[in-house]
Design a protein around this nucleic acid. Sequence first.
DNA 1: CAGTGGTCTAGACCACCTC
DNA 2: AGGTGGTCTAGACCACTGA
Lengths: 249, 249
Amino acid sequence: MNRPPPVDSPTFSPLYRQIRALMTRSLQSNDWRPGDMIPSEAELALRFGVSQGTVRKAIDEMAADNLLVRRQGKGTFVATHNDQRSFFRFLRLAANEGELPALENIPLDCWRGKAGVDVARVLALEPGAAIIIIRRVLRFGGEPAVFDEIYLPGELFSELTLDILKAEPMSLYSLFESRYGVCPVRADERLRAVSADRVSAGILQVAEGSPLLLVERITRTYADKPVEWRRGYYSTMNFHYHNELGSGR
Amino acid sequence: MNRPPPVDSPTFSPLYRQIRALMTRSLQSNDWRPGDMIPSEAELALRFGVSQGTVRKAIDEMAADNLLVRRQGKGTFVATHNDQRSFFRFLRLAANEGELPALENIPLDCWRGKAGVDVARVLALEPGAAIIIIRRVLRFGGEPAVFDEIYLPGELFSELTLDILKAEPMSLYSLFESRYGVCPVRADERLRAVSADRVSAGILQVAEGSPLLLVERITRTYADKPVEWRRGYYSTMNFHYHNELGSGR
DNA sequence: CAGTGGTCTAGACCACCTC
DNA sequence: AGGTGGTCTAGACCACTGA
């Protein structure tokens, strides 16, 4: 194997992290697309001039981050939002009793605007840059549960319209991924309790002033580039936000 | 190496998982205590009759679950709640602006009772079993932020009193761990928005009816044994609950 | 059957910590 | 110097998938 010489710089990283970085670039550049099978470990080892064990360790990390999915006997695949499996990775909602009933996604409106200072800062845009604003409702078993206000960089989603949103059968992120090549992989959320204003109360069919769970989310893609800012109002009479502590971090 | 013969049963698990199970038993039995250094990888490999690589993989998993902590050059240690590092693993609170100010932990009361059907179910106790109820407040920079009602199995915390709680300088879990040998390692949380009742409002110094973030938590120790049920009311005017999506699960 | 990921080994060497 | 974890290799074999 053509082992690169050991690096002594302060930015030293082990080989498997360099391999990981190279593979991440293949994801960023859309060279490997969501759902695709990536080359086998043996081939990658050959291509990068390292042992299979080193490639394995790189893939292990990326699989732990849900960037890749391993399937024994089949291959390793780029994670996609086009399957039910990965759906609730970004929707931590559960029913207080029993299973969560069937989901309905109802887009309300979709228009273009200019980024204010706050949205610009969050999305790393120039103030005044083109953005898209979407409002939608999620219903479970006919009951409205989540009201989302979503802000997107206009540049990335150039021809997005309400009709396109309404035509999407799967999730919003599934649309981002297949139509715009934007694959959300990480998100930071801030949760607060707030009182329902007139608009939210009407849309969620609760009394004005009712307590709502406010979930603010910044969504990022491979290079940690922010691609969405979202404010979600969750009605938590019959549902709750579920979280597990202990691993990760 | 004395390799055990390959197992063909439906309960097959790879060697490194069996090693992990053995090591987890050393944690459960308090043979290895929080903060202790566990034997070196080489010694464990010798002891279990496997290669060092197999032990490494077992430890890797347990470190990913925050059961163990590796420190290069020093050794591998049992995770403990006695350091600031791991403090916020179980308190996902952050300030809306800037850093979180200094924490004050103020125990309010601590009394004994009998488990109702709901508490008994959650803590896997017989209805009517002895439990301990604690109420406390967390303040940040003098401002009350969290009001906790905590239910513990009486059996595990036999001589817990309000004075002991008041004397504890670190966290509650630090006390559990060092005084009662109970080490919380995992928790499930359910988050909802509710209106402040008279009691919570008074304690958190907000108006009655204000929206509060309700966090219900079931805490478990090594063998997934439930050791705490907690209802926390978070005042989210100046703070929020922080969560990261994307990895894990 | 061939191809894929999954496990396990043995050994070499590096990086870090403490004495 | 000696101990610890961290990286990397080469190769053997197992388990699963699908043609």
